[in-house]
Design a protein around this nucleic acid. Structure first.
Length: 300
DNA sequence: TTCCAGGAACGAG
DNA sequence: CTCGTTCCTGGA
């Protein structure tokens, strides 16, 4: 992908950026460590850094960063090498639902996040809403992560390393409102720290084998495993099914009350290698339209 | 006060 | 294998 990109002081500006909308990216359930500023920009932390992203007309401004850092770190993180236009086009062929969903969430991108952070984040996510998940992750980072810096008056902490969580008691981890998942977090920290599973090698396996490997971790079931695969391991054929996706799939594609494994098969066959992208567009579409709330959606 | 949403573990069949 | 129940928290 070609970009019109330049450094302006301590910021990088990309002109005429396509398929890159901040609310679509940050509020489609894939990541949790972002803060929406009053001016509509988003400040986030990843890779041990804090950056602010701001859309101005057709430009995207990333601050603070440099051209070098952008190419080394953020290009991959924001999946800038991928042509989302083609993906949306292919998904929309002979599928009026995907046509609407991709138009609605047209600026979604799937971030390439850290496997360890993604593992713990989605263990925490089970059985909870997004705002509660964010609170637990922020609290764990504040307590056990290293201080990165301040941006617009807010302090930012790196996501804690496995060793930092491994050394905590279950009771201590519970203070971050993780509930019964605290035990899973400490166990997973041991798995990672002791290399019982080489988290950073799992992406080399096939999607199926990577999924099986992740499912060995306590607190990781089918949905959480698929989130880790999709959001941190480059497995775009993974299709995480949470209640929103189940409802929107039942609303548009499959009979009500279909067993999860049959729904999984259906999605795999229908969306194939693009299943993960389809899931993101559907998730965003369903949540924004309130599909499933009270049994039906609105405005579509 | 009670009820509910939200995934995985666990035990029973 | 599939099914039903339980786990924890915060908001209605």
């Amino acid at each position: 992908m070609k970009y019109n990109i330049q450094q302006v002081k301590d910021a990088v500006v990309i002109k005429d950026v396509q398929d890159f909308e901040l609310p679509h990216i940050f509020e489609c359930g894939q990541c949790f460590r972002w803060w929406r500023e009053d001016d509509g920009s988003y400040t986030m932390t990843a890779k041990g850094k804090v950056i602010n992203l701001c859309r101005r007309e057709n430009s995207l401004i990333i601050h603070p960063t440099t051209l070098e850092e952008f190419h080394q770190v953020w290009y991959s993180y924001f999946d800038m090498g991928r042509d989302y236009g083609t993906i949306k086009k292919v998904l929309s062929e002979n599928d009026p639902v995907m046509e609407k969903a991709t138009a609605f969430g047209h600026g979604i991108r799937i971030l390439r996040q850290d496997p360890w952070e993604t593992l713990i984040s989605f263990i925490i996510s089970s059985n909870r809403g997004i705002s509660m998940i964010q609170k637990s992750i922020e609290d764990l980072s504040l307590r056990y992560g290293t201080y990165i810096g301040e941006y617009r008056g807010r302090k930012y902490y790196d996501f804690p390393k496995p060793q930092a969580l491994l050394n905590q008691t279950v009771e201590a981890i519970r203070l971050s409102k993780t509930g019964y998942r605290a035990k899973y977090i400490v166990d997973a920290a041991a798995v990672a720290a002791e290399n019982q599973i080489e988290l950073y090698q799992v992406h080399n396996l096939s999607t199926e084998n990577a999924r099986k490997t992740l499912l060995r971790i306590s607190g990781v079931g089918p949905k959480v495993a698929d989130c880790i695969l999709l959001f941190s391991m480059d497995k775009q054929d993974a299709f995480p099914i949470d209640t929103w996706v189940k409802r929107v799939m039942e609303f548009f594609y499959v009979p009500q009350g279909i067993p999860l494994n049959q729904l999984q098969d259906y999605a795999g066959k229908r969306f194939g290698a693009y299943a993960g992208f389809a899931q993101q567009y559907l998730f965003y579409y369903a949540r924004e339209l309130g599909i499933g709330k009270g049994g039906q959606g609105r405005n579509f």
